[in-house]
Design a protein around this nucleic acid. Structure first.
Length: 575
DNA sequence: GCCGTTTTCGGCCCGACTGTTTTCAGTCG
C-alpha cells in the first residue's frame, strides 16, 4: 500500500499523542508533531520524493531517525513504534487527552487511580464524586469535565472563515470607536486566513486598557463574559464564537501582533532564532539583556532575527522561515492580480442573475473577462444545458461581446464528469467553446482507484480545460471524495490543463498543500468563484487567501493572465 | 528527536492563568 502525506502525518501525530501519555521527553513529542506538520504541508508526495532519491532528512525538523521512520511507513504502511505504543496505551487515554483541562498527568491519574476505561466510566466517576477526591483535582475541574462530556458528542465546531468575517468585522468597527484606541486588529488563525477558525483574537493598542476592555464587554452581541482582567478579556458572542481581547501599549504592537497571530509552531521557531542571537522575544517586545531593542512593528521582530517580513498566511513553520532566510519567499498573489473569473452560472440554469447582470457586476469589480459555465444536462435539478441550449447561449454571448466592449464573456460550460469518465456533452458541442470546466457531482463513494481513474479518463477528452472543485468537499459538511490528487495534478501537467481553486467559502477546494503541489509541478491554478449570483463574485478573495496559504504567486495562477495571454493557454487545451 | 557562527552534548520559546495548594504543577495559547 502506498502511504500519502496525510496518512504519514496522521501516524506521526498519533505517536506524539501516545508519547505524551507516556510522559516522554516533551521535546521528543514536539519533534513528532513538527514532522507531522512539515509532511502535511509539503508541496510534493513523500513517496515520489523517495522514489527519486531525495534525502528526507534535509527537510526542516526531520533528522535521520524520522527520515527512516517515514520511509518505513511509505514502504510498509506500518511503523513498529506506533504499533508498540498502541499496544501499551489504552485507547481511552488519547480520547481523554482531548478534553479541556486534562493533560497527560491527569489522564494517567484517572486511568490508574479510578480505572477509567471509557467515557461512560468517567461520567460515573464524576457523578459519584470520585473525581474531586483525587489529588490535583477539585470541584472546578469536576464541573469543567462534566460540561465537556455533555458537549463532547457535538464536536467542537469551527467557524468557516467567511462566516467568522461577518462577525469579526463589525466588532472591530465597534472597538475602533473606543476613545483613544489606536490600532485595532484581528490576529490568530483569522489573520492567517485559515479555512476555519476556532476562536478570534483581537489586539488593540491604547494608552489605557480599561476603556477598551469595558467597551469590548459592552458589545451588544456579547452573550457572556468568560473572563475579564486588566488588559484582557474573553467573551462568547451570541453566535457561540469565542473572542479574546488583549490590550497592549503601542510600543509592543508588533511583537504582540506577531505573537497573537501565530502559528504557535512559527512563533517557537522565530523565538528560537532570537535565542541563538542572544535575544528574548515575547509578546511585549524584543529584548537583549533585558533592554528593549524592538517590537513596535512585526517587521522589527523579523529584522531582529535577520529575516524579511513573512506574510501571515505563510506562518505555519512549513518551510517559510528557511525560505525567508534564503531570500526565497514567494511574492504571494493578490486579489488585484486577478483579471477575471472562469467559473460562474446565470439564471439560465441554477443561477440567480442574468448574463448581462453578471457581466456588469464583473466589470464593476474591474474584471477584464468572465467565463459563463452553466451546468450540463446530467444536473437536471439545476436545469443543466443540453447541446441545443448551450449553442443558443453561445449565440447570446457572441451578441453580447459584439455590442459590449467593456468586458469579454468567455464561452464555457461546467460539464459533468459521468460515472465512467465520459463527459456529459459531445465533443462536437464542446469544441465551440473557449473553455470546458469539468467536475464530479455524483458517485462520491468510489474507491480511490476508481474515482481517480474516472477523472483521469475525463481529462483525456479533447476539450478538457479546468478540473473544478477537485475533491468535492464541503467544509465541515461533506468529506472530500477519495481521489489521488498528486496523480491528478501530474496528469494535468502532462495534459496541459488546469486545476481550479474553488473560492466558494464552503468549498475552498483546492487545499493549501495541493496548491503548493500544483506550483511545484508547474500546473496553473484557476481561482474561481462558482458564483450563482452577482454578490458571490466577491468570494474571489477567499480563493486568494487560500492560494496565498498555498504559496501561490501571480505567475502560478491562470486568471492573472490578460485576456490576450489567457486565450492561447485555453486554446491549447481545446485541441 | 532535532540541531549547531558559543555546541556533536545538552540544550530545546515564553508567559499567563488556574486550580489547588501553601509555594507551584499542570495546562494553555
Amino acid at each position: 500500500m502506498l502511504a500519502h502525506n496525510p496518512d504519514i502525518a496522521q501516524r506521526l501525530d498519533d505517536i506524539a499523542d501516545l508519547l505524551e501519555l507516556e510522559d516522554a521527553n516533551p521535546f521528543r513529542v514536539r519533534a513528532y508533531r513538527n514532522a507531522a506538520r512539515v509532511i502535511r504541508g509539503l508541496g510534493a508526495e513523500v513517496a515520489v520524493m523517495l522514489k527519486r532519491g531525495d534525502d528526507l532528512s534535509e527537510l526542516p525538523g526531520i533528522g535521520k531517525d524520522l527520515a527512516d521512520k517515514i520511509q518505513t511507513i511509505v514502504r510498509t504502511g506500518h511503523l513498529p513504534l506506533l504499533d508498540q505504543l498502541r499496544k501499551a496505551t489504552p485507547a481511552i487515554a488519547a480520547e481523554l487527552l482531548k478534553l479541556p483541562g486534562l493533560g497527560p498527568k491527569r489522564v494517567k491519574t484517572l486511568y490508574h487511580e479510578l480505572d477509567v476505561h471509557t467515557l461512560e466510566q468517567l461520567h460515573r466517576a464524576l457523578l459519584d464524586g470520585r473525581i474531586r477526591a483525587l489529588p490535583g483535582f477539585g470541584s472546578i475541574t469536576e464541573e469543567r469535565l462534566r460540561q465537556a462530556l455533555e458537549t463532547h458528542a457535538a464536536a467542537p465546531s469551527r467557524l468557516k472563515l467567511a462566516l467568522a468575517e461577518s462577525y469579526v468585522e463589525p466588532l472591530l468597527a465597534w472597538l475602533r470607536d473606543t476613545p483613544h484606541a489606536e490600532t485595532v486588529a484581528a490576529a490568530g488563525s483569522y489573520r492567517r486566513c485559515q479555512e476555519t477558525v476556532g476562536d478570534i483574537d483581537i489586539l488593540v493598542t491604547a494608552p489605557r486598557a480599561a476603556p477598551v476592555v469595558k467597551r469590548f464587554t459592552e458589545y451588544e452581541e456579547v452573550e457572556k463574559i468568560a473572563a475579564r482582567g486588566n488588559t484582557r478579556a474573553t467573551v462568547v458572542l451570541k453566535s457561540g464564537l469565542q473572542v479574546d481581547l488583549r490590550v497592549v501599549p503601542p510600543r509592543s504592537y508588533g511583537s504582540a501582533l506577531h505573537y497573537f497571530t501565530g502559528s504557535k509552531a512559527h512563533n517557537i521557531a522565530i523565538r528560537r532564532l532570537g535565542q541563538r542571537r542572544g535575544l528574548k522575544i515575547n509578546e511585549y517586545g524584543v529584548f537583549r539583556k533585558g533592554r528593549r531593542v524592538g517590537g513596535k512593528t512585526e517587521a522589527e521582530v523579523y529584522r531582529a532575527v535577520g529575516l524579511p517580513y513573512i506574510p501571515p498566511e505563510l506562518r505555519e513553520n512549513r518551510g517559510e522561515i528557511e525560505a525567508a532566510a534564503a531570500g526565497q519567499l514567494p511574492t504571494l498573489v493578490k486579489l488585484a492580480d486577478l483579471r477575471g473569473d472562469l467559473h460562474v452560472h446565470t439564471v439560465a440554469t441554477d443561477g440567480h442573475n442574468t448574463l448581462t447582470e453578471m457581466a456588469r457586476a464583473a466589470h464593476e469589480r474591474g474584471f477584464e473577462y468572465l467565463a459563463i459555465t452553466e451546468h450540463s444536462k446530467r444536473i437536471a435539478m439545476a436545469h443543466g444545458f443540453d447541446s441545443r441550449h448551450l449553442l443558443k447561449q453561445i449565440e447570446e454571448i457572441d451578441r453580447f461581446n459584439a455590442t459590449s466592449p467593456r468586458i469579454t464573456i468567455l464561452k464555457g460550460i461546467e460539464v459533468d464528469i459521468l460515472e465512467d469518465g465520459k463527459l456529459d456533452l459531445p465533443d462536437a458541442t464542446l469544441g465551440h467553446l473557449d473553455l470546458v470546466v469539468a467536475s464530479v457531482h455524483s458517485h462520491f463513494h468510489f474507491s480511490r482507484d476508481k474515482q481517480t481513474g474516472r477523472i483521469l479518463r475525463a481529462m483525456e477528452r479533447p476539450h478538457f480545460t479546468v478540473f473544478a472543485h477537485p475533491t468535492g468537499r464541503l467544509i465541515g459538511e461533506r468529506e472530500p471524495y477519495d481521489v489521488d490528487m498528486p496523480r491528478i495534478i501530474g496528469a494535468a501537467k502532462d495534459r496541459g490543463c488546469f486545476i481550479e481553486l474553488n473560492a466558494h467559502p464552503e468549498r475552498l477546494d483546492l487545499i493549501d498543500a495541493h496548491c503548493r503541489m500544483a506550483k511545484e509541478v508547474g500546473v496553473l491554478v484557476s481561482i474561481a468563484t462558482d458564483a450563482h449570483r452577482t454578490e458571490e463574485l466577491g468570494n474571489l478573495r477567499f480563493g486568494v487567501f487560500q492560494a496565498r496559504r498555498g504559496w501561490l504567486e501571480k505567475a502560478d495562477v491562470l486568471n492573472t493572465r490578460s485576456l490576450a495571454a489567457l486565450r492561447p493557454l485555453l486554446a491549447r487545451t481545446m485541441r
